[in-house]
């Protein structure tokens, strides 16, 4: 069953916590991965791959650069999840 927006944000928070060590409560829709959450371009790839597995979605490299905020990623996953 497709994940809800709330479930996606919670899932992304767990992923970002594991990869970048950021507290889960800091991962909010308006937060920028790079500027607020200490996720650099290479860590972002790890976040994306973990999100792909967790939410059964494909996020091609060309689309990754458009995912600036947690909200961007959440919307992308909502629209593309299987």
């Amino acid at each position: 069953m497709a994940a809800t927006q709330e479930e996606i944000v919670a899932g992304l928070a767990e992923i970002v916590n594991e990869i970048a060590g950021i507290p889960v409560e800091d991962v909010q829709l308006d937060k920028s991965f790079t500027d607020d959450l200490d996720v650099d371009s290479l860590s972002m790839v790890e976040v994306v791959v973990a999100a792909e597995e967790r939410f059964d979605v494909k996020i091609p490299d060309d689309d990754v650069k458009n995912l600036k905020t947690v909200g961007d990623a959440t919307t992308y996953i909502l629209e593309h999840q299987a």
Partner: peptide, 8 residues
């Protein structure tokens, strides 16, 4: 190189 694509 395309850094992110190569990294993945």
């Amino acid at each position: 190189q395309e850094g992110q694509a190569v990294f993945r």
